[in-house]
Design a protein around this nucleic acid. Structure first.
Ligand SMILES: [Zn+2]
Length: 558
DNA sequence: CGGATTTGACCCGCGC
DNA sequence: GCGCGGGTCAAATCCG
């Protein structure tokens, strides 16, 4: 299964690459955070033209807040001076504007009324009151939004730091590995009987890039390029190291394996995800678990392989024929750690069989190899997003809107929510290629794509990773899968991860996803993480995210 | 021989 | 209560 890793890594590139990208990514984020609020303010102000005093204060505060952050942040991360300047400038300008406006309005209202004649004052009073009310409402709204933003920002920043740390760790690892790495065996074994089978289906996995292509944009490959020949080769790499190190933590007590779900709850701090059946003495605490359990993240990706390799080890524990679908659904559970509650089900899309739908459920209770991290973090992030969304929905803020917004803006359909789903589900749709148009920063695009490419696997992965390393395409779908797996395991993971990170951080448009992803990363390190706490009262919700466009703007916009 | 996969049985919630 | 469907178990089997 997991053999042969081979990726020749460019130490140079990687190393250089990461930091830069990262910083860039970060920058972007910050920008966003800052910019959004600013934008809102701007818009609102002119239109409203008269903010009340109280509100005033708030606005200013907000601005300040951001700027504050900015300053704070700046020191921490080395950012290009250029950008910084821009940032600060724009921010300042905005702030000024706000202040100015506010002040003016305020004065006018109060002073004016006092000095004017009664008649005039009356009329004006009414008017102004109306306006005031109006403005207040708006301000409130804005405040709410701002709060959200603030939260997001803080999350992002904290996440970022977490990310950075991870990155650092990874890089270190990588370096150490690098030394060792040069193995490059190609185990031809990849194929075999299995191959035969697979080949039967879709023998030569013809294309791959297709989708995510945008990143490579210019280079794109598309079918034409699909040099299947090229792809066939697979590079070898160095295997185990990472794995060992990473996984080493297993700390669990392996109790009997047989103990079904019962498992002593204490064993991992992390509850067995399911235990409903058992006579759980304390039925009460189930809610959180249940919640966790219910949140699902499904990934749609084009893949000819039977299952996408996400860096985790899975054991199949069941298969069933889905009702409306000729293709069976397979059930897997994570075997990287004994008690890991994570499950996934894999199924092909009925309409388009090239699309593989993988649904993840639960959170890993163990450390993950970077390769796995990309996926895990992304999914968990998405899940978190969903959960948080539902939470906020309690407040009445995002959920509904969120969905609607997400969906509408992007033609590619970034996010879709349907209440019909039995479980709250977030769907990451990787089948649509992002529109090149949307991306304005080429470099980032690449990064952006990378993570998904990984997820998507054999198809797009190259497009993304290609940049830093040259992987030779696998021969068969099967191999492709294998290769990917390797990819995840060997040092190259750093690439993918970094890419993922970069991507996450970099693409502003992908805000929602970004937030999620980042969050997840944090969550990733800490299995239990936050998600548990939110009780998803929300009925089944369904969110779909695809790589596409500007969730962020929309999201914040209203 | 140990671990993964297969596959029919079983469990359980849900709607009728 | 019954049937249905999704999900899980676990014995049998496969495979390296
Ligand atoms: Zn796991």
């Amino acid at each position: 299964m997991d053999k042969g890793w081979g990726l020749a890594l460019d130490s140079d590139r990687k190393i250089d690459f990461f930091p830069k990208k990262l910083s860039a990514g970060y920058r972007e984020i910050m920008f966003q955070g800052i910019e959004f609020p600013v934008n809102l303010n701007r818009r609102e102000e002119p239109a409203a033209a008269t903010p009340p005093a109280g509100e005033n204060r708030m606005v200013v505060g907000e601005v300040d807040f951001f700027s504050d952050h900015k300053s704070k942040l700046q020191p921490d991360f080395s950012i290009n001076s250029n950008i910084k300047k821009e940032n600060s400038n724009s921010a300042e300008v905005v702030r000024r504007t706000d202040l100015h406006v506010n002040t003016g309005l305020h004065l006018t209202t109060n002073a004016g009324s006092n000095q004017r004649s009664l008649v005039e004052s009356d009329t004006e009073d009414k008017r102004s009151r109306k306006e005031l009310a109006d403005l207040q409402a708006r301000l409130e709204r804005m405040n709410a939004e701002n709060q959200m933003l603030t939260t997001m920002l803080s999350q992002v920043s904290s996440n970022y730091s977490a990310l950075q740390m991870q990155l650092m760790a990874l890089m270190q690892q990588q370096q150490s590995l690098k030394a060792k790495t040069s193995q490059g065996h190609e185990t031809a074994e990849g194929l075999r009987s299995e191959d035969k089978k697979r080949e039967a289906e879709g023998p030569v996995v013809p294309r791959r890039f297709i989708d995510l292509g945008p990143s490579s944009a210019t280079e794109t490959n598309e079918p034409s390029q699909s040099n299947s020949s090229e792809e066939r080769t697979q590079s070898a790499g160095s295997p185990l190291n990472n794995k060992n190190e990473l996984i080493s933590l297993d700390h669990d007590q392996e109790n009997g394996k047989k103990i079904r779900r019962e498992e002593s709850p204490e064993s991992d701090g992390w509850v067995s995800s399911k235990a409903p059946k058992l006579n759980a003495p304390k039925s009460v605490d189930q809610p959180p678990e249940a919640t966790m359990r219910k949140a699902r993240v499904s990934v749609r990706a084009r893949s000819e392989a039977p299952m996408i390799t996400d860096g985790c080890q899975w054991r199949k524990y069941g298969q069933k024929m889905a009702k409306g679908n000729p293709c069976p659904r397979a059930y897997y559970r994570c075997t990287m750690a004994v008690g890991c509650p994570v499950r996934k089900q894999v199924q092909r899309c009925a309409e388009d069989r090239t699309i593989l739908i993988t649904t993840y459920e639960g959170t890993h209770n163990h450390p993950l190899p970077p390769a796995a991290m990309a996926m895990a973090s992304t999914t968990s992030a998405a899940a978190n997003m969903l959960l948080s969304g539902s939470m906020s929905s309690g407040d009445g803020l995002m959920n509904p809107n969120f969905l609607a917004r997400t969906m509408l803006p992007c033609s590619s359909s970034i996010a879709t929510i349907s209440a019909s789903a039995p479980f709250p589900t977030v769907t990451l749709d990787l089948t649509h290629s992002a529109n090149p148009l949307q991306f304005q920063r080429p470099t980032q695009i690449q990064n952006f794509v990378a993570p998904f490419g990984q997820m998507q696997y054999n198809q797009s992965r190259f497009s993304g990773l290609q940049v830093s390393q040259e992987m030779e395409p696998p021969q068969t779908a099967r191999q492709a899968a294998a290769a990917q797996f390797q990819l995840s395991q060997n040092p190259s993971f750093a690439d993918s991860l970094s890419a993922a990170t970069a991507a996450i951080t970099a693409d502003p448009n992908f805000t929602a996803a970004l937030a999620a992803a980042i969050t997840s990363i944090m969550g990733g390190s800490q299995p239990n993480s936050t998600s548990a706490n939110s009780t998803t009262s929300a009925a089944a919700t369904n969110t779909t995210i695809s790589n596409g466009d500007k969730i962020a703007s929309t999201f914040l916009g209203n």
